[in-house]
Nucleic acid binder design. Structure first.
Length: 748
RNA sequence: GCCCGAAUGGUGAAAUGGUAGACACGAAGGACUUAAAAUCCUUUGGCCAUAACGGCUGUGCCGGUUCGAGUCCGGCUUCGGGUACCA
């Protein structure tokens, strides 16, 4: 007997397996393959002949072109990331990643512990299962709700209700999932059927509503309006009963969702607190065979097909409607040449345009291609062994490099690339191909450089665009427009028309003869068309200035809008250092021995930069370089013994600049191979420390003391200082705190 | 709604619980120059005072812990990012 990994209801014997046809077997195998053909709902745009992502659709129209988009079931390749949900969750505990990023992934995976309860349907042999985390609230169930896509809808709907139910289902199909969610209007329809409460044997009406998702749990819920806000809204709207189950909970205005309090109206659970009640219900359900304990995850399988040309082709062909893998010796499968990169007339993906897109035996090859994350999920493994034509990565190379030590990336990848990579890596680890089951040991999030986006406003169902300040008079769709076609928020209409064939014949409603664009500060991204090209900055200041400026802007992990005010400062710093090394005749370095002050400036810098680099504090490093160079300029120091270590330190920040000076110093090899300087603490010793003398925590004056002065000496000298008398006001200090090399605080 | 993060001068920011505003940008004034650019010098949180020394106040708001809080704790406010009916 085999329980199929991903569908627990399915079980069969070896004999039964053998009696099945190849196609039937294949369909069963699809239930536990890591890559499988699955049916899923997609946003299909017939006019564009392509599936669109949620953010490519706005209010039922494609952003590109403004064509109608409908919901359609499509058979596509999927990757069963859900099978790894628990391990992806557990793995987070050992990763050195930021807590916020780990939280994002935990929420995305969305583990919830609960129970599946079986409900019988009155006067029929049918029963169905719901998932709930609040098994303790069964006594408060006043109705059940099915997702409109649920198979049960057809089975349960009574003849009297059929036309009403059909109309409702048709209506929900027109809306994308996101729209159904964004629009919080309560809608629903009664199926005519009644289920039986397994605890009380009371009949409960079964409703259908799109606030229940087909893709999560069982696509059906038990509604407890007193203790769930969504059920509450539904019950109020359709005037269904609300039974409070927690002592003292006021449910006249809103539901009481918190998992706390003492149970009432709940039979054998009365008097227990919620935690105890949940536990007791679970064991009751088990003992009476009313269902089972279940963990659900929010994480959905990844759709792995794209109806586009540019993507890795699947090494898959079809024979009698069944998918088969190409033999490994036929790999790699390369993209065919096509004359047309658009979908075919019959609505097939662009590969449908290719001639001879079939195997040697004549079987047709898969027409879908893989998405971007096919490449981005495992490239770091390929980097370990890029020229290997036998394997993704050799065992030797993988054993040597193991995993990525440090990954610097933005949080925008938290629920995409960074979770897919972990999934792929675990899968490859399970196959024994790699030695670590997590890809990125340490991860820090750099902040996003934000951009200023511009928008145009298209009037719905037209190709007419209305200027920003007039847009409220029309029903419009906001569309990003390339910021390079906009200056001072005024659109260059000619450039816009040439931007895309869709806009060639666009019409415009202007204000004062101009088209004014809307704007917003958002993350800088290709899809927002707000990318500012740094080329002109490189042209004017050089790449090192740009690099240094980005570091100087602030802490790496902080986001901020791109703004070049202040770039002069870092450019001046580089010039200052350059001028220190040159005179009117070119480079000149002194061979004289460095003074104490010069050595102190240098070694202070070595210490600071070495620490900062370890802690990703690049902005303070740049400041430290500026301070050091300012000091050296003051000392007129162009000594080789100081400049050389200084530019080694600066190389990670301004590599081209430093390489030039390195060469001028007479070095033949690259500065990248130079040895990192070491800090000699002896140069940093101070013989005198200037103490701030404070009274009740407020600094009042300064006093110099020898670095090794005793605490008692400091105390008495501070009190004896004439300035102290003013602040003591003749009182005796209660306490004097001396923190060596920090502060003196006199408490009065 | 939920989760995460942030809040310090005109601006970007700095500060292992120990002198708040380092380092820069900008601004103002000055030097050099026929002039400009470049470079250099001075001032630059706010308020009060001033011949001068100086004083008060100040890190979003309200409390707390501490000899001492931008930093730690509790409660708010605002902004940014992510997510979206997950039962």
């Amino acid at each position: 007997m085999l329980n199929v990994a991903c569908s627990e209801e399915l079980a069969f014997t070896a004999k039964e397996w053998k009696s099945k046809s190849l196609l039937e077997q294949q369909n069963i195998l699809m239930s536990y393959r890591i890559a499988y053909l699955g049916d899923s709902m997609v946003n299909w745009c017939p006019k564009l002949g392509t599936v669109l992502a949620n953010d490519e659709v706005s209010e039922g129209l494609s952003l590109r072109g403004g064509y109608p988009v409908e919901q359609k079931v499509m058979r596509q390749w999927c990757l069963r990331i859900s099978a790894y949900a628990q391990r992806l969750l557990d793995g987070l505990n050992i990763l050195d990643w930021s807590d916020s990023l780990k939280d994002t992934q935990r929420n995305w995976i969305g583990r919830s512990e609960g129970a599946e309860l079986k409900f019988k349907v009155n006067d029929s042999g049918i029963d169905f299962t719901v998932f709930t985390t609040r098994a303790d609230t069964v006594f408060g169930v006043t109705f059940m709700v099915l997702a409109p896509e649920s198979e049960l809808v057809g089975q349960l709907t009574t003849p009297e209700q059929k036309s009403e139910v059909d109309a409702y289902i048709l209506n929900t199909k027109k809306r994308t999932e996101r729209e159904r969610i964004a629009d919080r209007r309560v809608t629903g329809v009664f199926s005519g059927a009644y289920a039986v409460n397994p605890f009380t044997n009371e009949p409960i009406p079964v409703w259908i509503s799109d606030y229940v998702l087909a893709g999560y749990g069982t696509g059906a819920i038990m509604a407890v309006p007193a203790h769930d806000s969504r059920d509450y809204a539904f019950a109020k709207h359709f005037n269904l009963p609300i039974i409070p189950l927690i002592e003292g909970a006021d449910v006249s205005e809103e539901s009481f969702d918190a998992k706390e309090g003492i149970m009432m109206n709940s039979g054998f659970l009365n008097g227990l607190n919620v935690k105890e009640a949940i536990a007791k219900t679970k064991s009751y359900v088990n003992e009476n065979n009313l269902g089972r304990i279940k963990v659900n995850y929010r994480l959905r399988d990844a759709i792995f097909s794209r109806q586009r040309y540019w993507g890795e082709p699947f090494p898959v062909y079809y024979k009698d409607g069944m998918p088969y893998m190409l033999d490994e010796n036929k790999l790699p499968l390369e993209l065919p040449e096509v004359n047309n990169f658009l979908p075919t007339n019959t609505g097939e993906p662009p590969l449908g345009n290719a001639k001879n897109w079939k195997t040697e035996e004549g079987y047709p090859l898969e027409l879908n291609t893989m998405p971007g994350f096919a490449g981005s999920s495992a490239y770091y493994l390929r980097y370990m062994d890029p020229h290997n034509d036998k394997a993704l990565v050799s065992k030797e190379a993988n054993d040597y490099w193991e995993q990525v030590d440090l990954y610097v990336g933005g949080t925008e990848h938290a629920t995409g690339h960074l979770i897919y990579s972990r999934f792929w890596n675990k899968f490859l680890f399970d196959l024994g191909l790699i030695c670590k089951d997590e890809p990125f040991k340490r991860l820090i999030n750099q902040g996003m450089i934000q951009g200023r986006s511009n928008f145009v406003y298209r009037i719905k169902d037209t190709n007419t665009f209305v200027s920003c300040n007039l847009k409220d008079k029309y029903d419009t769709t906001e569309i990003h427009v390339d910021v390079n076609m906009v200056s001072n928020d005024i659109l260059d209409i000619d450039k816009f028309k040439k931007w895309s064939p869709d806009y060639a014949n666009a019409a415009f409603i202007l204000e004062e003869g101009k088209y004014i664009c809307g704007w917003a500060v958002e993350k800088m991204s290709k899809s927002m068309y707000n990318v500012v090209n740094p080329d002109d900055i490189v042209e004017r200041f050089g790449a090192d200035t740009l690099r240094l400026y980005e570091m100087f802007l602030g802490p790496v992990e902080q986001s901020k809008p791109w703004d070049t005010n202040g770039i002069d400062g870092v450019h001046r710093f580089l010039k200052k250092l350059w001028n220190l090394c040159t005179n009117e005749n070119g480079f000149e370095f002194s061979h004289a021995e460095a003074t104490k002050d010069e050595l102190k400036a240098l070694h202070k810098l070595i210490k600071k930069i070495s620490w900062d680099i370890e802690h990703f504090s690049y902005n303070t490093s740049v400041s430290a370089f500026m301070i050091c160079v300012n000091e050296l300029v003051g000392l007129k120091c162009n000594k080789r013994s100081i400049i050389e270590p200084l530019i080694i330190l600066l190389t990670p920040f301004a590599p081209h600049f430093c390489e030039e000076i390195w060469e001028a110093l007479g070095n033949k090899d690259s500065i990248c191979d130079a040895k990192w300087p070491e800090c000699n603490e002896a140069y940093l010793q101070e013989s005198v420390f200037t103490y701030p003398i404070s009274f009740n925590g407020r600094t009042r004056f300064m006093m110099d003391f020898a670095a090794d002065a005793s605490i008692e000496d400091i105390k008495s000298a501070a009190l004896a200082n004439p300035a102290a008398h003013k602040w003591l006001e003749g009182k005796i200090p209660k306490k004097i705190i001396v923190v060596p090399k920090k502060i003196v605080n006199i408490v009065i």
